[in-house]
């Protein structure tokens, strides 16, 4: 994992494309099947838009707890 805040359960992904279209920083993109892949994780701000709008609960954004 390292400093990667995104955990993706690719077996749950139905390739709808909502997460990477809504991502404001283009930190995630699609593979050749249209499923989500991490492209530029350094851009991720952990805003949670992908997590909250994934209809199939395939993405978790890990946030450090204070």
């Amino acid at each position: 994992m390292g400093n990667n805040p995104l955990e993706i359960f690719i077996e749950k992904c139905k390739a709808c494309g909502i997460c990477y279209t809504l991502c404001p920083r283009q930190a995630i993109g699609s593979d050749e099947q249209g499923k989500v892949i991490i492209t530029e994780i350094d851009k991720c701000t952990k805003c949670g838009i992908c997590e909250n709008h994934c209809p199939d609960y395939a993405i978790i954004v890990r946030r450090e707890k204070n």
Binding site: K12, K14, A15, C16, G17, I18, N52, H53, C54, P55, D56, Y57
Partner: peptide, 13 residues
């Protein structure tokens, strides 16, 4: 899970 709804269906949200 996973649920039966189509890809992109908002019901999951």
């Amino acid at each position: 899970l996973p649920h039966i709804w189509c890809p992109g269906c908002g019901n999951g949200i």
